[in-house]
């Protein structure tokens, strides 16, 4: 780890005034909340900020009703949120995506503000000796022809196929969510769906946040049928593993007919991914294996495999099918 200055301002507002903008190459300053991403990458010299501004205790923590929506403080830990009745009962996908991620120890410190900004696990991003346009713009992408089993098939470019590694964002994207941000210019909100940006030819840019912007909370507009939601996570092992593929599914159903379906995908895309075309297809359909799989096909119609990860296309389709079936099987009490 490179030497850095630790600073702990008195408020989130003060924090955004203190942090030096961090460039794409990892210079400048960074915020520290749970630290589970930033310290990990600093140990690898993937990030080498010259200051860390500790905002962990400055961020609002907790979940509450606010103006008919659910307000979630960015300082809420993954563990606390996973257990919160507002998630567990009203939108189980938001809870499942949390307790199925990382480990209890990590969830005890990682915050929801940092969680959506979790960095990719692409091995070439994490290795400073490898070419990586995300870490070092213009150096190339070692992954497209490399060992890419765990990398993305949706939203990729020739310059970057790094998978978005998080889980919760793939569920959050199902709902109409506003991200509350404080920055040097003051407070503002961003639609969650506009937060992450596709890699394109600038993979080092991952979000629409400014360098000194700080996420302080989320306002989630949960439909009253969000109780019928699941987060189906396919992993090589049963726990403590990143998704090979995942599907967040919420269904509004009348008998066997889908009024509205919402599908978020993880493990397969470069950003938290909303499968809108598949959702449109499902509206008004009866859910069967055939229609579920067709939704999967539609969701992956533009997918591109890179060799080792070709299987993620059929796997992603099957994961959508499974997520739809599991969501449909839920009853109001949340039991199958």
């Amino acid at each position: 780890m490179k030497s850095f200055a630790y600073q702990k301002p008195a408020s989130a507002q003060a924090a955004v005034g203190m942090v030096d903008p961090m460039s794409a190459a990892g210079q400048g300053g960074a915020f520290l909340a749970g630290g589970t991403t930033v310290l990990d990458l600093m140990k690898l010299h993937v990030l080498t900020p010259d200051s860390l501004t500790d905002v962990k205790t400055l961020l609002p923590a907790g979940i509450e009703e606010r103006d008919g929506a659910l307000y979630v403080g960015a300082g809420t830990t993954m563990a606390a949120a996973a257990e919160h009745p507002a998630f567990r009962d009203r939108a189980p996908a938001l809870s499942d995506a949390l307790w199925k991620a990382a480990s209890p120890q990590l969830r005890n410190v990682a915050t929801l503000g940092g969680n959506v900004l979790q960095r990719t696990r692409c091995p070439y991003f994490r290795d400073v000796a490898s070419a990586c346009n995300k870490r070092e713009p213009g150096s190339g992408c070692a992954a497209t022809e490399g060992v890419n089993r765990l990398l993305a098939v949706l939203g990729t470019s020739e310059d970057c196929i790094a998978t978005y590694a998080g889980d919760w964002a793939n569920a959050l994207i199902l709902f109409d969510t506003q991200v509350e941000v404080t920055g040097p210019e003051g407070d503002r909100t961003i639609a969650f769906e506009d937060l992450h940006t596709l890699p394109g030819d600038t993979p080092a840019v991952e979000t629409t946040l400014g360098d000194a912007d700080l996420i302080t909370g989320y306002l989630i507009d949960l439909p009253d049928w969000a109780w019928r939601s699941v987060y189906t996570k396919v992993r090589d092992r049963e726990s403590y593993a990143f998704a090979v593929a995942s599907a967040a599914v919420a269904l509004d159903m009348e008998e066997d007919t889908i009024r509205e379906a919402r599908i978020g995908l993880g493990g397969v895309a470069t950003v938290p991914w909303r499968a809108r075309a598949a959702e449109d297809y499902l509206a008004g359909k009866t859910l069967t294996e055939e229609t579920g799989l067709e939704a999967g096909r539609i969701a992956f119609a533009d997918a591109r495999g890179w060799g080792h990860n070709d299987f993620k296309i059929p796997l992603g389709q099957q994961t959508i099918l499974r997520g739809l079936m599991e969501a449909a099987a839920l009853t109001r009490e949340g039991t199958q």
Partner: peptide, 11 residues
């Protein structure tokens, strides 16, 4: 040891 997978308790 996050991507070289060994069995966890849940496995």
């Amino acid at each position: 040891i996050a991507e070289y997978l060994v069995p966890t308790n849940a496995d």
